[in-house]
Structures are given as structure tokens and as C-alpha cells.
Design a protein around this nucleic acid. Structure first.
Lengths: 323, 323
DNA sequence: CGAAGTTACGGATGCCGTAATGATG
DNA sequence: CATCATTACGGCATCCGTAACTTCG
């Protein structure tokens, strides 16, 4: 059975059982319609049309099958329309899973740019813990994750380094440490600390620094959310350890930011991709705007490689920007 | 677009994205499959498959279009069956997916009648788990399903209630419980149980009864198959909970059947239909013989209704027979 | 006799199958 | 190295379009 045959049958029916008219509508010839329907009848083993000279009619079977032919053609049409929607590369959705700090302090500028380039793409930012980010990504609930900690959860994902960042110690204005020139780890260890819930996870650079110096930290309060940390620092609960990029010029004037890049190894923010993910072209664009060395050809090459080793190799050796 | 291309795509998907296997199933060659799908992609202007060397994956567009392709092929199939219907009212095949209990204890009498009315219809009974029944039905691999449990898998199907049935407790002759007049749930809970794998699924009447009575059941053994359950009851593994209709007068004389209709809510056996299914006239006959209130006009009306709500409404309010 | 459908037939398109090549585990 | 996919290419079937014939109002 050919779709064309069904189309011929349907259009002939639609044109009041006039093959010549159907041929005109379908930009073909009348004998073509005739033989097409005839072949369909032969294949199905039943007559669909009654023919009395030039006068056509529908058999009972024909009535039934004309309807089914229409249904089928509608389904085919829906395939074509679905395909057309996927063709419009500037429509769709972009779903990112990330942590609060990224969503709050890093993504906004990229998203502003992105929205002006792709106004018809809907955006979904999904916040969560590192374990949640990994799961969302693996399940395909998001297109990719942007993460800085908890990489032990990401073993099945491709991790593309994006940029490095350092931490700052924040204290309220007037705090004894506020005027210190270069703060020491011992000074930090002497104060109650307010920091990220995951900031002390095994292997984090903060935890490493304290461990190497044989100092134990007094963690008074943790939150997932930089704004909450600032709040409690303002309340005098302790001194904060936060990402330096979380400084806001306008609203943070009552806080003193002490650079801590000499105390803690810089961390690297990564994009986490499921190896089998299919990226729309605007997704490549977003990634490149987020980390300009992650060009589309590079990412495509990484994704098309099936060996983990090769994937990571391709992503190494870039001079990462600092934030 | 060619139907063959849709078929190639669907079968490749169906064979776990293995073109070689699809080629085997479709009696053609692997390069044919490959180029067929490729031509479809070119025509639609989108990639359907991701190709990493020999490893295939589905793009998001592919996922969507695979489903639409299946729908289309099902429509085509319905055309062929409709044609066959007009050719020979009494030839074709009847494919039913059901569980072991139905196949073993309920269907035989209906099938005996059916075979005498339609000797030229070939019969295919497909056994499986509730999830498998649902999938077979949705894929159009069977004409309909007959199921009693696991309706959470059937959300996309029309469910027509057929009859209600109760359970019995079976114990070997000579068992202490064999002479009990009316067995209590506490007595059942005190014994190791042998029952259906799916009998304790959430929402099953057996699970509900125990939960409501704050009793926990000691399920010693489960099987999909009533014969296996009987076997293990005979071996003394525990007492059985099975469908009452599974009693066989001749061979079950060494077992005592204790009616349990006062312990567990009756269950309802349903016929599950794909809403777009095309039923041959002998299929309507079979359904009516299986559940006499499901007459052809009623079922036709249900199938022609496009609103789920209406469909189910039409099927309610019948006094169901008990078995 | 004009409008409409069928039959007949030649030619181009496009599809399938074989064979060779490439990639992966 | 076995498996599985893609590429290349030649033959062949299918289907379309032109032309001639037929039927009916």
C-alpha cells in the first residue's frame, strides 16, 4: 500500500468522486489517479469504487476505507508537522539544572543574552543539590547541569570544565577581621563559620585546606543559598565563606569581602552532560556563551566519541577564565 | 514519505535500535533499512537517530516521530484488516493478551464456542504480566487484552468491565484449616501464603484487606501461574490464595477450597482496548460472548467516542455477572 | 460531441540488494 | 575479529505521463 494511493482515493472522494478534479488538485494526471486507485483495490482484494462508464460511486467497503485513509493521511500530516516544529531551531526549551549560586549570580547575564537571541525558547532553571543535579541530568529531565561541587555523583556524565573561581571570606563591617590585610587560615579557623552545605564535602578545596593545615573548622551554620549565608553573617552568627562572584556591589556594602584565593584551591565549575544527550543548536550556543572554549564542533566531537577517556581528553588543556 | 520508511524506523526502534535485527524481521537487508531511514530524515529535514559509529540513539524528534510512525502504521493495518473484513467476514486472526488464570480457566469455554462459529479464524493467546499486556495492546500486537490486575499500566486503554470474581483459600486435605467453617483473615495471616506475583500489588483487594485489618501477610511464595501455586500448596509450602474459578473438579480433589469472598473485595476482570483499534466482526462476537452486555453497538459507540470520559461512562452501570 | 474514465505503453525515477568500507567493543 | 552501520553502485521494478480508445449525457 502506498500513501499516494490513499491520497488519490481520499481526494477523489473529496472532489465528489471526480478523478479529473482530484488530479487537478494533486497536480497530477487523471490516468494516474485511476490506476493508483485500481492498484489499491487489487492489493486490498476488494472494490472501493463502482464504475458505470464514467460515473463513479462508493462501495460499502469504499466508504469505510475512505475514512480510514483520511485518518492515516492525518497521521502522516502530524508527522510532517512534528518534524517542522523540530526544524525550527529557534523554538523549544532549554532546561538547566544548577545550584543556587550559579542561578543567582552567574546565569542571569548569560540568560539575558540568550533570551535576546532566542526569544521563543522557554527557559527552565532547576535548582538542587549536586546529587539531584546528577539525577535530573541522567534522567533527561534537563538538558545539562552546571555544577561546582559533588562531582562524585556525576560519574556517568561528561564533565566539561568552564571556569575557575575563588572564595571570599565575608565579615560584617566593623568586625575585628574586617581590616586584616591578608587573612590566614588560622584566623578563619578561630571563628565560627557560615558556608555552603556542600562546601565541606570530602574533596572540596575548603575541606582540603583545613585538613592539610591540621586545623579543624567550627562550622556554625550551613545553607545552600548564598543569600541566606549573607543574612546570618550580618546577624553575627559567624564569618562566611562564599564564592567571590556572589558579591553584589549595591546591596553588599555592609559586608567586607576578604579575598581567600591564597587559602583555598580554586574550584572549577563544570557543565555536566549525559553522553547520549541530543543538543539543539541553541543549546550549543548557550554553552559556548557560557564557556567560550566549548565550541559546538568541540562539544559535538566529545559527544560523538564513545570512549570516556577520549571525551575527557578533548576537554582538557584549556586555559580557563577566572571569576 | 513512504510507509516503508516509517516501518523501518518503527521496527528499528522496536528491535532496540538495531538495524540488522530490523532487517531480519522485515525480510530485507540492513543497508536498505539504513538508507530508508536516512531518506526519511532528509525529507523531514531533521535527524531522527543519533549515530556514533555503530551505536544508535534516538533524538527527541526521533522519539516523537517513532510514536507517530507507530500510530500511522496501525492505521494502515486497520485499512488492511477492514479490507480483509469485507473480503471474508469469517477469516482472519484473533489475538488476545491475557494472564495465565484467564487463559487457563476462563477462556477455554469461550474459545470452544468461538472456534465452532469461526473455524477459519486463527487464534493467538499471548500470556504476560499486566505491564506486558498493556504494551502488547498499545503496540497493536494483539487485538485486545483481558486483565484483572495492574490497571495502573492501562491508563491509555479503554477498560470495559466484564465480570467480578472472588478468591478462595486453598489448603491440602488434612490441613488444620481444612475443616474451618468460615475462615478469618487472622487465620490466613497466621499461615505462610502462596499466591499470585501481582496479587499483592498496591491497590489489589488482597493487599487492601490485610492493610485495613492491620495484619501483615507472610507471603512465602508467589507465581504467575495458578497451577504452580496449587503445586506448592500440595507440597505444604503454605496456603494458597487463588481465584475461585481456578477450581478444577477432577484434579483438585486433594485440595480444600475455602471461599474467601467475605475476606477480600471482589475483583473485576476487564477487557482493555486501544482506543484506535479496528475490530473485525468476529472480534465483536467474541467480546459479546465473553461479556454479554458488551454488545457490538455499545462497543462501537465507545470506540467512536473521542472523550475518555464518555467512553467510560458508557461502560458503567451494568450488573456484572459473578464467577 | 464534450466530458470523464480506462487501457496501452515508453521512459525516468527511485528503490533494493550486493559488495566494499568504516567504526566499535 | 566479530558485529553493526554507512557508502557506492548497478539493475530492475514501479509509477507517471502521454496518447489512443471507450462510455455516457
Amino acid at each position: 500500500m502506498k500513501l499516494k494511493q490513499l491520497q488519490y482515493l481520499w481526494e477523489t472522494y473529496n472532489q465528489n468522486l471526480n478523478m479529473s478534479e482530484a488530479a487537478r488538485v494533486l497536480n497530477t494526471t487523471q490516468p494516474g489517479i485511476s490506476s493508483g486507485i485500481r492498484r489499491l483495490e487489487v492489493e486490498l482484494g476488494i472494490d472501493l469504487l463502482t464504475r458505470k462508464g464514467k460515473r463513479l460511486g462508493l462501495t460499502p467497503a469504499g466508504e469505510r476505507i475512505v475514512q480510514l485513509a483520511r485518518d492515516t493521511l492525518q497521521k502522516v500530516d502530524s508527522i510532517e508537522r512534528a518534524a517542522a516544529e523540530f526544524q525550527h531551531e529557534d523554538r523549544g526549551s532549554l532546561r538547566i539544572a544548577t545550584t543556587h549560586t550559579q542561578a543567582r549570580y552567574v546565569l542571569p547575564e548569560h540568560i539575558r543574552n540568550f533570551r535576546s537571541s532566542y526569544p521563543d525558547v522557554s527557559l527552565h532553571i532547576n535548582q538542587g543539590t549536586p546529587a539531584q543535579l546528577a539525577e535530573l541530568t541522567l534522567n533527561g529531565d534537563v538538558d545539562f547541569a552546571i555544577a561546582t561541587e559533588g562531582f562524585e555523583h556525576f560519574s556517568n556524565l561528561i564533565l566539561a570544565p568552564c571556569y575557575t573561581w575563588n572564595r571570599s571570606i565575608i565579615v560584617p563591617k566593623g568586625h575585628p577581621l574586617a581590616s586584616v590585610d591578608e587573612i590566614s587560615l588560622a584566623q578563619v579557623a578561630a571563628e565560627p563559620l557560615v558556608t555552603y552545605v556542600f562546601g565541606f564535602a570530602g574533596g572540596s578545596s575548603v575541606a582540603n585546606a583545613f585538613a592539610n593545615a591540621r586545623l579543624s573548622a567550627n562550622v556554625a551554620f550551613t545553607a545552600t543559598d548564598t543569600d541566606v549565608i549573607k543574612k546570618y553573617v550580618r546577624l553575627g552568627v559567624g564569618i562566611g565563606i562564599i564564592a567571590s562572584m556572589a558579591r553584589e556591589p549595591n546591596t553588599d556594602e555592609d559586608l567586607v569581602f576578604l579575598d581567600a584565593s591564597h587559602l583555598f584551591e580554586p574550584s572549577v565549575t563544570h557543565i555536566g552532560l549525559r553522553p547520549e544527550v541530543f543538543l539543539r543548536s541553541y543549546m550549543y550556543d548557550f554553552i559556548e556563551s557560557f564557556a567560550e572554549h566549548l565550541t559546538r564542533p568541540l562539544v559535538e566531537q566529545v559527544l560523538s566519541s564513545s570512549r570516556r577517556h577520549e571525551q575527557q581528553l578533548l576537554l582538557e588543556g584549556f586555559e580557563l577564565p577566572r571569576r
